[in-house]
């Protein structure tokens, strides 16, 4: 018997492991709607207390930067080493700087 056409949308799952940390992308799953996606995400991705908070987002709602354009897209930061604190010398003996 043929599986019926995949009607359920794909969802991306983000889990935060502890209060105060960020949500990390953990994987994806199919669900009929958002509450089901949340429940499925809990069952699939947090069997070992991996999270205190779950976000589910329809995959189609995510806009991603393009891998091909990775070089040019991030190019502006390549020659701005002065954005890092280590670029600036600190005189000997000076603390709390």
């Amino acid at each position: 018997m043929k599986a019926e056409s995949g009607q359920w949308p794909l969802w991306e799952v983000f889990v935060r492991s502890k209060q105060g940390l960020t949500h990390q992308h953990i994987g994806s799953l199919y669900a009929a709607d958002a509450p089901m996606a949340l429940g499925n995400a809990r069952d699939l991705y947090t069997r070992r207390q991996e999270g205190v908070s779950i976000w589910v987002v329809p995959s189609g709602e995510i806009t991603a930067s393009s891998p091909e354009d990775q070089g040019p897209f991030f190019e502006p930061a390549n020659d701005k080493v002065y954005r890092h604190p280590t670029f600036y010398p600190v005189p000997d003996g000076i603390e709390n700087l």
């Binding site: 019926e4 009607q7 359920w8 009929a32 709607d33 089901m36």
Partner: peptide, 11 residues
């Protein structure tokens, strides 16, 4: 199948 169809119809 009926479960998948029902979930979809409900959604």
């Amino acid at each position: 199948q009926w479960v998948r169809e029902a979930a979809w119809a409900y959604a």
